[in-house]
Design a protein around this nucleic acid. Structure first.
Lengths: 214, 214
DNA sequence: AGTTCTATACGTTTAAAAGCGGATCGATAA
DNA sequence: TTATCGATCCGCTTTTAAACGTATAGAACT
């Protein structure tokens, strides 16, 4: 973080913008703080000026922070946007992350967190406040293995996994060291058990049941 | 973080344990540092003593850190385990998170990161080093990307959709009212464009790109 | 006016998958 | 002790997919 960089605050509350501006201006490596009171104004501003870092409120009247983020990144895909929210709402942060935000902090975060966030995002990393991280990893962990009580045997799951990887029966046979005919038979049995008609059905089944990841 | 708390270091490298012990003992809120040189010894130790915080190496001979974590959490599900790894390997951290680790830091992390990690985990939050966070969110974002900027034509997407539903080319042809040979050709072109090898690859592509829902 | 892209259609050949059949062996459950 | 089940293997037939090529009409773009 050698060179000072410019930031922009997008928020519909003047008081909040003013407060955050004071905080940011107290940081030595920030040289220029712009403000936009809504998404439209921010997109306008982008035509003239590209800030190094953007603080984007999510809940705004008219175009909200998510939509604004999507449109801004469509024009300039390397913008570094930090989302600001009152709440650690799952829907908010997943949509904001998918929109392309690099960071996500709550409005009641301490200055220490804001600084950490800035440092990480400017350095090319992401940053999410601990409250949000808990949610993200909870999602990660719960998503694994919906598991349907071993409809398929281990070997069958193994074969199915390889099918999803795009291998032919012959390749699978070589890969796991059994005869091609055996793989044929396994495939046939898997089709029966999963009530699938063909390869497409097998892949759909495997994904739905966590045998392969998308 | 009022009360001082106890920690345990599980790592097969004596030198590393010693180094980390020195660092940890320099922190005012740590009162007791135990060590275990492998997973078995750690599980033994748990019978006598439950540390408030555990640093767990992943790559260990015999029972690795992932397996040790799983077994430890089976006995005491509220243990706070921080994984230590040399590399930000995706397979490592996803498995470690799924095993139930609350934090994940790299062995070349700075003291600042270690402290942040300890604070977060002791407070009940998770902590992951920035290198790993990038990977986690990359996974999150890549899961929902309905657009591939029209790599496929509308007709091709339509055909692909029906393929995923398990229809044969003949059925697709009847379904959308064109010749079976035309569907053959579409399928061939889709295989080319998506760089897929066979039906399995097509279905995976379609799901990854939001052409069908899982 | 010409090029490019898409959708349409057809022919051929080979590889793979799907749909039948039967069989042996070992572990496990009734 | 049977009976069942999973994993292994084999043969045969039909259907489907894959990989190649060619060609035409219309739309869109240069």
């Amino acid at each position: 973080m050698k060179n000072p960089f410019s930031v922009c605050i997008v928020d519909d509350h003047k008081l909040f913008r003013e407060g955050l501006r004071i905080l940011l201006e107290s940081l030595p490596y920030i040289k220029n703080v712009q403000e936009a009171s809504d998404g439209y104004m921010f997109l306008e501003l982008l035509n003239a000026f590209k800030p190094d870092l953007i603080f984007m409120d999510i809940g705004m009247p008219g175009m909200d922070g998510i939509e604004t983020t999507i449109q801004a990144l469509e024009k300039y895909s390397d913008l570094k946007i930090i989302a600001l929210s009152m709440y650690a709402d799952e829907d908010y942060y997943t949509r904001m992350i998918n929109a392309g935000a690099r960071g996500f902090i709550l409005k009641n975060s301490g200055m220490k967190q804001v600084e950490e966030c800035i440092e990480n995002v400017i350095s090319g990393f992401n940053y999410f406040s601990p409250e949000i991280l808990s949610g993200i990893t909870r999602n990660l962990t719960k998503k694994k293995r919906p598991l349907k009580s071993a409809l398929l045997s281990e070997r069958e799951e193994e074969v199915l996994y390889h099918i999803c990887q795009g291998l032919s029966n012959h390749e699978i046979a070589e890969n796991i060291g059994i005869s091609k005919r055996t793989v044929d038979k396994h495939r046939e049995n898997i089709l029966l058990k999963t009530e699938s008609k063909n390869t497409a059905g097998l892949v759909m089944f495997a994904i739905r049941n966590g045998i392969v990841d998308v």
